[in-house]
Amino acid sequence: MAAGGAGRWFLLPGLAFLFTIDLIPLVYSAWVSFYNWWLIRPRDVRFVGLDNYVRLGVDPEFNRAVVVTTLFTAGAVALEFLAGLGLALLFAQPFRFLRPIRVLLLLPLFVVPVVGATMWRVIFHPEVGVLNHYLTTFGLGHPPWLSDPTWALVSITLVDAWRTIPFMFLVIYAGLEVLPAELFEAAAVDGASAWQSFRHITVPLLTYIMLLAVLIRGMDAFREFDIIFVLTGGGPGTATQTIQILNYRAFGLGHMGQANAIGIVTLVLVAVMCFVLMRAILRPRGAAQA
């Protein structure tokens, strides 16, 4: 492994671009979070120190939103990861008939999020939706998909999974495709079972890719907005009111200080979550990969 030197020239363009474009707004945003700034009162901008943060800390609505967001993120990412991994393993098998189906599995990614969510609302519609029509026909009842607090949380998780299982699938699948086939052949010669070669070859070699997929999905799910906003708008009551819904409200009403404080708290929560997860998964293996 080479040190320093030439690496600089590979890293410089991308990092310079990224940090200029993203860190400046981020620092600005952190700075604004210490102000009381309401867009409709441009002449009344006051420095308030940590006020915006303190207010979030004691706001029961915000604390509830943190819980709801965490539940949603954990549920959605777990479901998506398991489904995505399963599909990727299935498609990594040398079956000819699977090739053409691959692109079909990716289709949900291509639907504009707001349309996908709107159509799911049509499908979920408890009174006139197609889903409950067939469930009733087969005697399976008609669940109140969006109008019961628990079901509503389940529904938004399902729709999020519909949309992003293809992401998990594609990332893990591409990772599987570059694993050296020789390793598996050697293991098969040694009489390893499918589970054993999964456990001892695939998992270690794919840890990094799988972790990355989970991290990326985790941070996106934590900040998910469109699907939840279209499907439930945070309701019924406050059952699906996530941090982003609150952020949208503050932003929409022009409370810049508050909105930015919510944003910075979100960023810190996500960063800590990712950091802990990375430590937990990479360290015990002696930082095997990268």
């Binding site: 519609h125 408890p126 006139v128 969006l146 439930t232 309701g235 019924p236």
Partner: peptide
């Protein structure tokens, strides 16, 4: 009202009339 008005919005109110419910 229809049993699931806890998830209704403007468009759903319209739908309930338009579909004769």
């Amino acid at each position: 009202t229809p049993p699931n008005v806890k998830s209704y919005n403007f468009a759903d109110v319209n739908k309930a009339i338009q579909l004769g419910q």
